[in-house]
Write a protein that binds this DNA or RNA. Structure first.
Lengths: 215, 215, 215, 215
DNA sequence: GATGAATGAGGATTCATTCAT
DNA sequence: TATGAATGAATCCTCATTCAT
């Protein structure tokens, strides 16, 4: 009966919803970038998406959920684009090159998805941090831990890896903020400084199974 | 009462005003710490200070101004406590020691004035950043630049100093966030990592007029 | 499929429609019980029924209509189960027994159909009372009037019968609320009190064609 | 210093607030009567009071609080007007007269304060019942229990008194609804029926220390 | 100076209902 | 029929700021 069209009918309906969701997420990204997460209002997002507030709430139960979904998709994009590891784990790669690759990739990714930065810098709140940012943060952190696991000496304590990852992510986030607030050659200079800071920070920690450290 | 010592009247009034301001700033600090700058409401600050909203607005034109004044006083406190340079610039001091001293001092200062952190991490907003945080940031940055000026080789380009200062401040802020979100020995470990990250980042930059670099 | 038995098609459709209606009414009953009529949302009813909001509106023009139909069916059920009169009108039955029978039946009916209570206690609204509750109320009232007609002396004024019926129904509704808010022996005690209140209220009104009044 | 005016200054300020509160409560009473508690919106109450929504929330934290305060003041009014006991407890008073007095007083009170009825009939919700109605209900119930304590035989079980009070209040509430939905002589007739129902219900329960029961 | 009442636009969210598919 | 997306006014409530006293 429905054999021929049965799969497409629902698909078309779902497709509309999926399109709306995409639309809403894009609007949300835009608004988050423009005003930050805290100041972003659901009404503004709906308006930006050209729909009514009610429509937004048909797809997301609340503002937080939008940010979470946005973060999720962002991480998937990141994975799809640069793979799980974010960088080549070829033992022969010098640390500086590995770091540079990761920084370049993350920076390029942020250029493509400016909301990445907006989401990473959670709201003002103390301790709390919204679930959305937490999720994004945790996810990123995991990737970095994985990456570090292949750089640091085999026997390194788990807690040390985590701590190191936290510091690296912190340095990167702080650096990204600077990168974004500058332009042209100065911006490039900041990118280089992030790489320097990370490389130098990690250099004494990596085992000598890596290529020769920076001269 | 009102008849005697006509000259003391204004003085007393000013004193009263100063007390009020102090009161309000302390309340603001408390509220900023508890809820973050964005979520802090002027009404909540007034309530915490035990005065009416109207009174608050008799001393500060708006929320922003409170943060600015708070930041100003914080910077003065910092200067009063640790001097302009934040650390001894004795050329003989090894870099690691100088960095450790600065980090310890800033961290101790933050412990004494928890709102320091809250103000440094401005609101969510994009680029803009509120004037208050900007001011605090700029002030801190200036101190760091001064500090770096004595560490980096004499002829270093002004722009390079500024850039380096930005990066250092960024690393410190990111690190402080981690320090504050941990406790006990883990917290200590993070403090050490901040020192490591900064020392290693600066090490190749400082001239050899400093004590021997970290072994 | 569509080719054969052209006559059965509509029948089957009607059957399907009837099933849907049943489904929706059961869902509505469930939601009305859980949240009350006012707070019940049509979306919630549709969800509970496992259909889309649109489907609900294909069978009922609005929320009110659902309640009305639900009330109607409830009254039919009541009639089907306990007959038109709700109780034996055997003149020999003592008043107390007749009252007890009616109360027990209504109470049992409410146990079987908890939404009965929810519908009887209409929304908050003033005077207005929604059509649905009005209908249920009127219907119940009619049954009680019929019942009373056989209890009160033959020549009793119609207005008096109606008034008495109103009072009896009021007492019963108030009592039912109490019954439902208690459990165990206390609940039984309340049931008994309803019977007492009604019996004593009616006792002086019934003619002596009934069995001996309560001692 | 302030001795003379010190008490009046604050008083005047508080007076404005108190006036506003009165105004808001009157507006709330009006809106509750017009639309019922559930449907009453805080904005509508503010509008009715001629103030902005914000003003309302300066005096009441939420809708519920308005109803609670309204109920409180209502109970105080009731107490102030008719005393704690609601009726003479003169042992010589015949039950019918005592009941009539209470019913008349409550009915008169409700005529003076129509919101009394609106508040007694809480929202639709199941079990829940808002705190406001609960409070009013409990308060009324207490008064009735006190009253009954002097009517029922001295040794009566506490639980029995409470149960009887519940039933009486239930009958009265149900009756009041009927009274309010009728006019003129019919309304009077309903008032009489409430008295009858209550008197007859209580008659077998009161000790013979009361005046002769109804003939 | 101090008070606290007043504002009113704006925030997130809900819901009965309609409509394109 | 059935779907579920779409609507948009309405809900409760907040907050920076102003103003009369």
């Amino acid at each position: 009966m429905d054999t021929a069209t049965g799969r497409e009918q629902p698909r078309r309906r779902q497709a509309r919803g999926e399109r709306r969701i995409q639309q809403l997420l894009e609007a949300a990204a835009s608004v988050f970038c423009a005003t930050g997460y805290t100041a972003a209002s659901t009404n503004a997002i709906a308006r930006e998406a050209g729909v009514s507030p009610g429509t937004l709430y048909q797809f997301f139960p609340n503002k937080e959920a939008i940010a979470i979904e946005l973060g999720d998709r962002l991480m998937h994009d990141l994975r799809d684009t640069y793979g799980e590891a974010l960088a080549p784990v070829d033992p022969a790669t010098p640390l500086a090159d590995a770091v540079a690759a990761v920084v370049d990739r993350l920076t390029a990714f942020n250029t493509d998805h400016p909301v990445f930065f907006a989401l990473m810098h959670g709201p003002d709140m103390p301790g709390g941090i919204t679930e959305a940012h937490d999720a994004l943060h945790t996810s990123l952190l995991g990737r970095i831990e994985t990456l570090l696991a292949s750089l640091l000496p085999p026997g390194t304590d788990k807690a040390d890896v985590t701590r190191t990852a936290h510091i690296c992510l912190g340095i990167y986030k702080a650096g990204l903020e600077l990168v974004l607030s500058h332009e042209g050659t100065e911006q490039q200079a900041y990118i280089q400084e992030i790489k320097n800071a990370l490389t130098r920070y990690l250099d004494p920690l990596v085992g000598d199974h890596l290529g020769q450290p920076v001269g």
